[in-house]
Write a protein that binds this DNA or RNA. Structure first.
Lengths: 236, 236
DNA sequence: GTCAGTTATGGTCACTTTGACCAAAACTAA
DNA sequence: TTAGTTTTGGTCAAAGTGACCATAACTGAC
């Protein structure tokens, strides 16, 4: 393909294999406090290397699908979920990620809504874990999750990504709880409210959430578009 | 690599091939105004597909090097340069990027300092172009450059990346010129100065740039660390 | 029905940041 | 010496932010 770089000895070595993995975030109530916290599904490895350890859902890139499609399919196959947000995270290609072979993983990260997340498949070999309480994962997957969390926090602070963890209608307090869960600090309700009200992408509806114990909060709707990725650019 | 004459069944059996490309930015004076503008090196394709068109420097990933090392080597081989900043941009894996085979490109973007850039190799098949005046490039490389420019502008506004386009010592006006070239708008010298002086990563030196036509500006030095990539995290 | 408890919502106030603009300092060129 | 230009320090009003207070509106206990 390119003139300068390929030589014969490189050609004879097996090329690095290519895999797609996904870090899938969803909101679930904490067992202790009941407040929403970040969770993600992992799959148990049933083969070497790292047999028995938990790992990110993933698999090889099949020939007739784009990277994003592969991540999406991957997500659906392991958890039964459809993502409400999907973005490329990073391509990890260190030499010793896998002890047995050279593998380059293109990792995506996804957000799923709680209505979806409640339907997620769980089984002996697929289970959800709190994002801040993971044990030792296979390969370099702990570092990948750390980076995905960093990216999520970043996008949250600057972008309009929180709404993809919620349903179509939500209260401002629910949005605040998402921020508090992801950023891991408390936010002033009144100030937070003021900021959200100044963003044009959040639309006030005429309805209120009923059935709570206190003053019924107004419901809002998110009207913005997700992203600015190369994969999503044409649709904007 | 796989021959372009492979038939359909062979193509489907073969895994997508993996390549590394780099978008390399450097500052050069505009021919017309003399003010610094963004330039990047391209290589002319000497084979099909897209024979004769200009393309980003790139090549296959060799077996014993990390993704970043491959990008770095790539850059050195085509231009003779060493980057002062190198970061992964995106993995492009659309189905029809190349008409002859499925190829996934992991693209890096780099900044090189002007002293380096002046030494860059140019030849019949390697030439520098103004980033805002590229013609039609091979593959999806126009879109890749657009995305790299977007990313550069973003990093500039929020990160501390401008200094990697300058030498070790620089004046505040030079930094402002970088911002003006990349963001394509004029900035107030006094306000810009105030902002830079409030960032702790910029260190005042006791020296001044001599030989100018007017009041000699003080020289500064950048003392920050570059990034927060997975590839660079351990060094922070 | 009344009242305590709690959340939703609106507001103030001091402080910081930002953009527009002014003016003096310091150098060169003529 | 003077005109011209850039560097550098400053003001001022507008906008944004964080801390905090107060009222509105609802539920549940009594």
């Amino acid at each position: 393909m390119y003139s300068s770089s390929a030589n014969v000895s490189e050609r004879q070595a097996a090329p690095p294999s290519l895999a797609i993995s996904t870090v899938i975030f969803a909101l679930r109530p904490s067992e202790s406090s009941g407040r929403p916290t970040l969770w993600l599904p992992l799959v148990r490895r049933i083969r070497e290397p790292f047999k028995g350890l938990w790992a990110l859902p993933g698999g090889p890139l099949s020939h007739a699908e784009s990277l994003q499609d592969a991540a999406s399919r991957n997500l659906r196959e392991t958890t039964g979920l459809a993502p409400s947000y999907l973005e490329q995270l990073y391509a990890f290609g260190g030499l010793h990620r896998s002890p047995t072979q050279r593998v380059v993983s293109i990792v995506y990260w996804a957000l799923v809504q709680p209505t979806e997340a409640a339907l997620a498949d769980e089984s002996e070999n697929v289970r959800w874990f709190r994002a801040d309480r993971l044990g030792e994962l296979a390969f370099d997957h702990n570092a990948i999750v750390d980076y995905a969390l960093w990216r999520l926090r970043n996008k949250l602070a600057y972008g309009s990504v929180a709404y993809h963890l919620l349903g179509e209608y939500f209260t401002l307090a629910q949005v605040r709880e998402v921020y508090e869960a992801v950023l891991d600090r408390e936010l002033d309700p009144a100030n937070f409210r003021r900021q959200l009200k100044s963003t044009p992408e959040i639309e006030e509806t005429g309805e209120f959430l009923q059935g709570g114990k206190h003053r019924p909060p107004r419901l809002y709707r998110f009207t913005g578009r997700p992203g600015l990725d190369p994969d999503n650019r044409s649709t904007v």
